[in-house]
Design a protein around this nucleic acid. Structure first.
Length: 110
DNA sequence: ACCTTGACAGCGA
DNA sequence: TTCGCTGCCAAGG
C-alpha cells in the first residue's frame, strides 16, 4: 500500500467487528474518504491479504456484490454465516439500512 | 486527452 | 421490492 488512503480503507475494513457487516460507501466514509465507495471496491478487488475481513463488506442494501453462484459469492456467504450473520438470498439480514438524510436530520419518524 | 470498465450509492418509477 | 438511470471516483486501453 503506497497510498495512505488505501491504508485507511484497509484499516476501516479491519475495524468491522466479526458478525457485523458494512457497506462499501460506509467503509469509505469511516476511512475518511466519503464518496470513494468504488475505490474500496477496487482495493478489495486487488486485495491479497487473506487476513482482511473482506467478507464483511457488502453493498449498501446488504446484498453480496458477487453474482449468485460465483465461488466468491459462496465463500463470502459461507464466512458471514460462520460469524453468525444471517444471509438469505445472497442478502444480509439483521443489517439496518442507513436512514435517509431527512430522517437523520429530522430525527422524527414523521 | 477520451472512452470504457468496475466487489458502488442514491433516487424515482 | 425490483428495475433503470444518474452521479461518483480511479485505473486501463
Amino acid at each position: 500500500m503506497e497510498n495512505p488512503a488505501n491504508v485507511r480503507v484497509i484499516a476501516a475494513i479491519r475495524q468491522i467487528p466479526p458478525g457485523q457487516v458494512a457497506g462499501y460507501g460506509e467503509v469509505a466514509r469511516r476511512a475518511g474518504l466519503p464518496g470513494r465507495a468504488r475505490m474500496v471496491a477496487r482495493l478489495l478487488a486487488g486485495n491479497d491479504d487473506p487476513d482482511l475481513p473482506w467478507h464483511r463488506v457488502v453493498r449498501a442494501d446488504g446484498r453480496i456484490a458477487f453474482p449468485a453462484g460465483s465461488r466468491q459469492h459462496l465463500e463470502q456467504c459461507r464466512r458471514l454465516r460462520a460469524e453468525g450473520v444471517r444471509v438469505e438470498g445472497g442478502r444480509v439480514r439483521g443489517m439496518r439500512r442507513s436512514p435517509s438524510l431527512d430522517e437523520r436530520l429530522w430525527g422524527d419518524p414523521g
